[in-house]
């Protein structure tokens, strides 16, 4: 565990907590893509099956359980408890365009052709693009609430910090996982446009509004 990895994990944790607080306090999931949240729940379920086969550390187990519980909880809040506030008219990204290619890719490009390894690989590929329905929703409505922007910023920072972690691990531990690195870079790149808007607008106290 290095400082970049820890900061990345904490940023990821913060993103999820920000999202849950937003939904809970405002009793609304307006502006949030339920489709992205479903994809994240699939990502965690397929990645953390090793909870049942491997014990790594109490930290590792606690974080996995939290990510699983919170992602499933978010889906529950959006599709059941606060269903009436879910903005489904603007949440129209076709997730089969993400699920099918990432599933196929994980069958072809993996470290080992085994069920656990393929599901892990699928979760890595799917995570890299899971935010697209949310970014599509923001671009469709042309704006995002500040709290949604903070959520997206924390979520994007997480994979960016993981890249620094991978550089550190490559130099100091000789460790690298090419699948995680390439997918993580793709994931981070998808946020670049948003990061630019966040820094130039939201941090200056303005609402995130896309140019018409």
């Amino acid at each position: 565990m290095n400082i970049f990895r820890l900061a990345g994990d904490l940023s990821h944790l913060a993103a999820i907590i920000i999202l849950l607080i937003k939904i809970w306090k405002t009793r609304s999931c307006a502006g949030i893509s339920g489709r992205s949240q479903v994809l994240f729940a699939i990502v965690f379920i397929t990645r953390y099956l090793d909870l049942f086969t491997n014990f790594i550390s109490a930290y590792n187990t606690a974080m996995k359980v939290f990510f699983l519980g919170s992602s499933i909880g978010t889906v529950y809040l959006m599709y059941l408890k606060f269903k009436a506030t879910y903005d489904h008219n603007h949440d129209t990204f076709r997730i089969e365009f993400l699920l099918l290619p990432t599933a196929l890719l994980s069958l072809v490009l993996n470290h080992e052709f085994s069920v656990m390894e393929i599901l892990w690989t699928f979760s890595i590929y799917l995570e890299s693009v899971a935010i697209l329905p949310q970014l599509f929703m923001v671009s469709k409505t042309g704006e995002a609430e500040s709290i949604t922007s903070h959520y997206l910023f924390a979520l994007g920072s997480y994979r960016g910090l993981y890249i620094l972690n991978w550089i550190y691990r490559y130099y100091f531990e000789g460790f690298y996982d090419i699948i995680a690195i390439v997918a993580g870079c793709v994931q981070t790149i998808l946020y670049c446009d948003f990061f630019y808007l966040y820094i130039t607008k939201v941090l200056k106290g303005k609402k995130l509004q896309l140019p018409a």
Binding site: R5, H12, M63, H111, E112, W120, Y162
Partner: peptide, 10 residues
């Protein structure tokens, strides 16, 4: 190989 090592990253 990598797949034999426990995955410590989240």
């Amino acid at each position: 190989s990598l797949s034999d090592e426990p995955k410590d990253e989240l």
